[in-house]
Design a protein around this nucleic acid. Sequence first.
DNA 1: CAGTATCCTATCCGATACTG
DNA 2: CAGTATCGGATAGGATACTG
Lengths: 229, 229
Amino acid sequence: MEDKDPQFCPIAQAADIVTESWTPLILREALMGSHRFNEFKRAIPQISPSTLSRRLTTLTEAGILEKSSSRDDARGLEYHLTEAGEELRPVIIELGKWGIRWVRRKANLGKHDAAAMMWDMKRCVDAEVLPDERFVVKIEIRGVEKRARDWWLLFEEDGNTDLCLQPPGHDVALKVVATMETWADVWLGHRPIHEAIDGGDMRLEGDRLLQDSIEDWIGLSVLAPTPRP
Amino acid sequence: MEDKDPQFCPIAQAADIVTESWTPLILREALMGSHRFNEFKRAIPQISPSTLSRRLTTLTEAGILEKSSSRDDARGLEYHLTEAGEELRPVIIELGKWGIRWVRRKANLGKHDAAAMMWDMKRCVDAEVLPDERFVVKIEIRGVEKRARDWWLLFEEDGNTDLCLQPPGHDVALKVVATMETWADVWLGHRPIHEAIDGGDMRLEGDRLLQDSIEDWIGLSVLAPTPRP
DNA sequence: CAGTATCCTATCCGATACTG
DNA sequence: CAGTATCGGATAGGATACTG
């Protein structure tokens, strides 16, 4: 391993820190705005708590994250990017752009992917374009384990959005149904959402206005606009 | 490890390939124009041949390198970047820019660093600005093991440059002496070369014209121009 | 909830030796 | 020279259980 004998090459030094397993994903989450242990945990479901703990410590020691006691009521720490950490954004983004352009290995999509996508989706929905009402959109992901199949996006009047794995007890204004494969293709921008809808791979039921404006409010992955080869 | 259960997140997929140990350095070399097994080997002295072999195979299977039989006389294969591989340049460069800006861990500089730097330096010297003559510059690196201390840059009439660990049997037109620490600082652009010379940390002996134009022909690391925080 | 400690296993890397 | 095969040891990550 490089670490045995640290190199003076800056690429080697940066790689020693950034390329540890799981670290790019942790950085992605931090750059997307996650701050709490369990925010990282649920966005990266496969990581074990011990490894996540170790990585957060390592990144803190490397000057990429800073620990601070929680702002408000909650206990536990918060993790915030330092200036150095923020400057890793281009590294992670370029990595993602490359991945979306060139990796064609088909992953076996499962519950972890569904969960990771949903938490990211929750972050990306654009409530600005939506009416200032409280309403619920149900997302159904076919072909994954039951526990990760049904999700509810709860839009609050104040523009905040919550994601639940249980029905939040309001009427569902819109239901969107597709297989995980279709969701992944749409989410990553491999396929325009209207093409999936018109092709019958994604089904919408409920409020017409929400249906017609789905492209505007649903918000895809930050990597979706990347041009393809 | 992420590999257990491949994710659909493009950052995770790219990371699975690019962030294996040694791979960023192998990519750096490929991007800088290395093609042969031993070019990689001597530019990354710490890697074991088995690991290098495995990585070159992995990168080929991932569609980043292509193996081809050697162009000219030599036996063995050549490794060339595919289009996908070439597009990793921004990832590696951003990694290096981050490293040069933010990593402050002092490496214990030794023979491997000296060798890696010298082979890179050989690639970066700009013979264009030099007279079309055959002449030799000796580089002396104080503070490293004897075997990596003395290097000779041999400039040929045709503009080609060779690097030797033995005196090539021509008169030395210029000798440049500094500790490895100073060489590293100058090479990486942490410190202007004239500052090191004027400060007495780098000593030049020989041809005045070569001395006066050293900044023009010596060619620093591609990362040297990176602005510092 | 927000992590940490322990233990065990799998893996992966380097050393060495070998081959066309 | 240009790699590849084998082997043994280190290490790092997951599972599990635990704590304030």
